[in-house]
Amino acid sequence: MTSLLETRQLSKSFGALVVTSDVDFRLETGARHALIGPNGAGKTTLINLITGRLQPSRGNILIAGEDVTSTSQAARVKRGLGRTFQINMLFRELTVLENVVMTVSEHRGRAGDMFRYAFSRRDIVAEAYELLERLRLGEDALRKVREIAYGRQRLVEIAIALALKPKVLLLDEPAAGVPSAESQLILDVMAELPPDIAVLIIEHDMDLVMRFAQRITVLVQGAVLTEGTPAEVMADPRVREVYLGEHHHG
């Protein structure tokens, strides 16, 4: 069976530093999968490799069975990859609404249009605004991103990823650094994600992982230590040793 997303012996080194080593990983339709591991384990790097922000030193990436290893980031987005960043990557000087309008335009293939006003496309703006309302960002729609609270900026990250209507959603520590009042909002949003999309979440907060994930992959020093259901992974003594032994929040 072909998976929605698959990596084969994916490897990446920065000079002598091996950051990803022979990672075989699969994500199926509707998956709720968590990627955990200590700081510097190579979790973000794995997402960067999958999305094409980084080129692997070796190995392959397949989306729905098709090899995309040498394609551009844009081509992979077209095939259904959407992501958020561990550190906000937003258009800070633009409004929340325009951040999403830009994304919707891009998704619809209309972002290269030259001879009409961007915001006269009411259908596109309305789609963006509805998404914001769904994520409880409606009130912030016309404020600049840099003016809203950090927790809400994290929601804008998710809004942008969702505006691409991804088949595979890659979330890099969506709730990290968010005060608990606002992190509940992020949890709610995650619970309401469309059931048919595959979600991979990187997260240090084990409570959140246990609530959200059906499967967990543990990454240590760039390599997969183990993979399984939350119960299996928690029962694994090696996991307790390398990961839970030095419990992280952050």
């Binding site: 922000r53 980031q73 987005v77 960043f85 258009f91 800070r92 209309r110 009409r116």
Partner: peptide
């Protein structure tokens, strides 16, 4: 017209955050 068009706004996007533009699938 150009700077207020989707094309022009996407140029602003390129200026504001190149990494993000790639991640939303723009042919930068």
């Amino acid at each position: 017209l150009l700077v207020h068009s989707p094309f022009g706004r996407s140029l602003t996007g390129v200026r504001e955050n190149l990494v993000r533009m790639h991640a939303i699938g723009a042919p930068v």
